[in-house]
Write a protein that binds this DNA or RNA. Sequence first.
DNA 1: ACCCAACGTGTTAGCGATAACACTCATCGC
DNA 2: GCGATGAGTGTTATCGCTAACACGTTGGGT
Lengths: 352, 352
Amino acid sequence: MTGADDGAPRVARTPKAAARPRPPAMHDVAQLAGVSHQTVSRVLNEHPNVREETRQRVLEAIAQLGYRRNSAARALVTRRSGVLGVVMISAPEFGPTSTIIALESAAHAAGYSVSFTTLPNFSTEQISRVFEHFFALGVEGVVVIAPLSSVAETIRPFALQIPVVTIAAGQGAGQEFHPISVDQQLGARLAVRHLVELGHREIVHVRGPQDWFDAHERYLGWRGELEDAGLAVPEPIEADWSGARGFEIGRQLAREGLPSAVFAANDQLALGLLRAFAEAGVSVPGDVSVVGFDDIPGSAYFQPPLTTVRQEFDQLGRKAIGMLLSAIAGEPLDHTPIPPRLVPRASTGPAA
Amino acid sequence: MTGADDGAPRVARTPKAAARPRPPAMHDVAQLAGVSHQTVSRVLNEHPNVREETRQRVLEAIAQLGYRRNSAARALVTRRSGVLGVVMISAPEFGPTSTIIALESAAHAAGYSVSFTTLPNFSTEQISRVFEHFFALGVEGVVVIAPLSSVAETIRPFALQIPVVTIAAGQGAGQEFHPISVDQQLGARLAVRHLVELGHREIVHVRGPQDWFDAHERYLGWRGELEDAGLAVPEPIEADWSGARGFEIGRQLAREGLPSAVFAANDQLALGLLRAFAEAGVSVPGDVSVVGFDDIPGSAYFQPPLTTVRQEFDQLGRKAIGMLLSAIAGEPLDHTPIPPRLVPRASTGPAA
DNA sequence: ACCCAACGTGTTAGCGATAACACTCATCGC
DNA sequence: GCGATGAGTGTTATCGCTAACACGTTGGGT
């Protein structure tokens, strides 16, 4: 069954090899270096038991042939792909895109590559298609940048099959998947506290879509801080995330009566507010103070420069990858959220 | 060497299989369906020569076992990974991130998955590391979202080994790689033409870093349009891409004398200008008209709403992927740039 | 001296898929 | 009637790699 010397199989392949359109394999390197392919493998995988001289010879042969190990073959036999899947909402918004960049850097630093997919929304069907795709790809773990709280439920069944870290979707999710996020409530509290310290007593909130995790948390933070300060909690004003809606609300407030301060769920809304106030001749922060959330590029150059809350996406990305790797390795993980930071600028001032 | 009936190898594996931590393979499906693994493969690959009844049986077995084909094994034997590599600059800017989202959708629609990598800058060393990584991964083609013109030179040697499409880096690059971009010159011309039509005769340009392809093209477009209109070409004002620099320049202009109109290389710069003008009591568009470039979210709510040039990133992404697939298939490609669109808003008005 | 551990290396056997070829029946033209 | 054709299926050989084991060499310990 065996017996054959090395020649036999080589001869059998030689006629094809003559044309040789294929890249060099380990075997070719081995031949050139005068060792077995296994030794080449050992060199590549930094096994200790290889004589330094042999190692050098192999390395040279690799360089000479321009050899690169075939990751498919490797993945096949090791059952590890070295790939992480990342799912993102398909919107070029500042938060998710910053996160994904941070995620990739962290994954790369850990020796993983990232396969990513975008999703227009997070329906059950789409989610399951994406996971199916990732399974077929053999990813070792998945990060879902999932703004909607409902995603937590949707991904639960998949999270049982593979380690999953969710960013900003549902705290206290249980053992199946691992949520991590910036502490949105704290961010909102910082914003409100800042206004309270400036003497504001009537702080309204323009809140984002409540099925978004972040929006809901910010709302809770705002309410909580007002309550803790012993202030009245006015009815929140409903909004999406857009500048257009902010503008609309700003006009309405200017017309129907201004509060002392407004805490907007994000910077786009705040931008719309500022513009509406400017048009209506309302002075910011003279007549009303405005705080945003996100610190998007440019918010320092709004009129006036916007006081806002900054999220550390880099940290978030690093932590998410760290958690995912821990989950893959079966280690315990730390779910502590990342603290955000208040960035005080000119859109807030002492209460009138 | 062979002789052994099907049993032999199975028996040999059975002791391990008893623990069975591994997912079902084609063989298992075949066994359950009472066919050979090759027939399973045929069903999966939609070969015509499979009886409908057999097909159904196999499909059922697949469903029952929750079988998923192993992409590593498939890639190994077919020498095709079904993966495209995408390189992006690691900055959460609107353009690149919009592009990458579009890119992924298009790739996904074409049955490819996307592995992506970010790069803080585009040094030769980094580029070569990234390509090395992609080669090891076995990607079939690469898209480089490369803002710097110099990238064209850097990637040339790699482009000889694998199909590469570059976005916004160096036109007329030769046969090695395939550049595609939004027509920046046209965009700039649209902006300038708009101003000229409003009667402006002194149109200065705040230009971006000239080693960026887009910035240089916009500059050329501005100059070209002025020349075609028979107007004087003032000295361009140097800038980076930031709101901060726009603010600085705006203050300076307000102090040292305003032109009739300003064409800023991007919306962030324009935002800075607007703010500086507002602070200096300069009216826009009364005293000076301002045009930006990008149409970032929120630019409709600047004060005043910004006239700008919109790029169709979706189209760009689709086209880039289309080109890459053509290149992989060895078909001829169409390098025609994508036309941008002027978005007139309130920051421009008739010349004083 | 002698046994054994360890080092350095080679051999063999898969990983899970596809490709190429072989084989068995029907069906068809002449 | 009989070989040719083609549909439907199975067999075998890889793809390029790593794991597991086998084998000769050294170098201590006693």
